[in-house]
C-alpha cells in the first residue's frame, strides 16, 4: 500500500496563529511539569536515602511535618502551578477566533464513512478529501456529518472539531504559510477510520484563485473513448453514487468525481492519484480499503479503459 508523502502533521510545528498559541501553552506546561516532577523526584530520592531519627512518641514533629509537607508541597505548589496553567489556558482559548469575519471564505465540510465532502457554496465548487484554503485569510468551515461522528483535526493549524450528525458547527481556520497538512479523522467512525484523511492545501492567493477557477470550468469529453466511458459510467451504475457536475450526473452517496485528475490522493488519503491506482480502485476497492462503502465493479479491460478516459476528461 503506497501512501502519499505530505508535511508531517505535528502539533509541535505550528503553521497558524492558533497552533502557535497552543504550542506556546504546551512548552509552558512541559517546563512546569518537568520542574514539578524534579521537585517530587528529588524529595523522594532524598527521603529514601536519608537516615531517619529513632521513632519517638512525641507528636510535635509529626504535626510540623504535616504543615511543612502537605501545605507547602501538596497545596501551595500545585495551586500556584495550576493558576498559571489555567491562566495560560484561558489565554490560548482567547486566541481561537470566536467567529469569522463577515467576508470570510465559507466552506462546508461533511463527513461520510469514510471520506470528506467539501463544498464551496459561493463558488459553486464540490470536491472531496481536499480542502483548499488561501494563506493568511480566515476561513469559516461549517462541519457536519451524514452518518456517524467524525472529527476534523488539523494539528499543524491547531484545529479540531467533531462533526456531529445532529448539528453544524463552525470552526475558523487560518494557515500562515503555503503547505499541505494531514488531517486524519479524529473520532473513531468504524472499520476504515484509519484511512480517512483530509488534505488541507494552503495556497498563496494567486494559486488559490487559479484553483477556484479551474474547478469552476467544466469540459465536455470529446474523444470517442471518453464518450464510451460515459456509457460505462451509467451502465455500471457508478452514476448512482457519483457525480460529474459538468455531465449532469447527480449521485451523492460517494465523492464527487469532477476534476478527479487534479486531486492528490485516492480513497481519502490512501494512495497517490495515478491512473493505475484509479483502475485498481474501481475494480476492487475492497482489496485496498476493506469495509469501504464502494462495491466491487467487474469491468472488462476495454470498459475500464473507456471509463478511465472519461474520468480524466470529465470535468
Amino acid at each position: 500500500m503506497a501512501r502519499t508523502r505530505l508535511i508531517a502533521a505535528t502539533s509541535l510545528h505550528p503553521q497558524s496563529p492558533v497552533a502557535e498559541a497552543i504550542a506556546d501553552l504546551w512548552w509552558l506546561m512541559l517546563v512546569l511539569g518537568v520542574i514539578v516532577f524534579l521537585v517530587f523526584a528529588g524529595l523522594l530520592v532524598a527521603g529514601l536515602r536519608r537516615t531517619a531519627p529513632e521513632p519517638s512518641e512525641d507528636r510535635a514533629p509529626h504535626r510540623r511535618l504535616v504543615a511543612r509537607w502537605i501545605v507547602a508541597g501538596g497545596v501551595a505548589m500545585p495551586a500556584v502551578v495550576l493558576v498559571v496553567v489555567f491562566a495560560a489556558t484561558l489565554q490560548a482559548m482567547r486566541a481561537v477566533p470566536a467567529s469569522a469575519p463577515a467576508d470570510a471564505l465559507e466552506i462546508e465540510l461533511t463527513g461520510h464513512r469514510f471520506w470528506y465532502e467539501v463544498r464551496y457554496p459561493a463558488e459553486g465548487i464540490v470536491t472531496a478529501n481536499e480542502l483548499h484554503v488561501p494563506v493568511g485569510r480566515q476561513v469559516a468551515v461549517r462541519v457536519t456529518s451524514k452518518d456517524v461522528i467524525h472529527s476534523l483535526w488539523v494539528p499543524a493549524l491547531g484545529t479540531r472539531v467533531d462533526m456531529l450528525p445532529e448539528r453544524t458547527s463552525t470552526v475558523v481556520l487560518q494557515a500562515d504559510r503555503p503547505g499541505e497538512h494531514h488531517s486524519r479523522c479524529g473520532e473513531f467512525c468504524g472499520i476504515q477510520h484509519t484511512n480517512m484523511e483530509l488534505i488541507v492545501v494552503a495556497e498563496g492567493p494567486d494559486d488559490f484563485a487559479a484553483w477556484v477557477s479551474s474547478q469552476q470550468r467544466f469540459t465536455e469529453p470529446t474523444g470517442a473513448l471518453a464518450r464510451e466511458g460515459r456509457a460505462v459510467f451509467v451502465g455500471a451504475r457508478c452514476v448512482d453514487c457519483h457525480a460529474l457536475r459538468g455531465q449532469q450526473t447527480a449521485g451523492a452517496r460517494g465523492p464527487d468525481l469532477t476534476h478527479l485528475p487534479g486531486r492528490r490522493t485516492l480513497g481519502a488519503g490512501l494512495s497517490p492519484n495515478t491512473r493505475e491506482n484509479i483502475a485498481d480502485w474501481i475494480t476492487d476497492p475492497q482489496a485496498i480499503k476493506p469495509g469501504a462503502e464502494m462495491p466491487t465493479t467487474p469491468l472488462t479491460p476495454a470498459q475500464l479503459d473507456a471509463l478511465l478516459a472519461y474520468l480524466e476528461a470529465g470535468g
Binding site: A52, G74, P78, L82
Partner: peptide
C-alpha cells in the same frame, strides 16, 4: 472552561496525597 477548571482543581487533592506519602517516607525508615 468550567470543566477545565474542575479537571485541574483535582491536582490539589492529588498533590496533598503525594506529599502526605512523601512526608511519611521522610519520617520513617524505608
Amino acid at each position: 472552561s468550567f470543566f477545565a477548571a474542575a479537571s485541574m482543581a483535582i491536582g490539589i487533592p492529588a498533590g496533598v496525597q503525594i506529599f502526605a506519602w512523601l512526608a511519611t517516607i521522610w519520617a520513617g525508615r524505608p
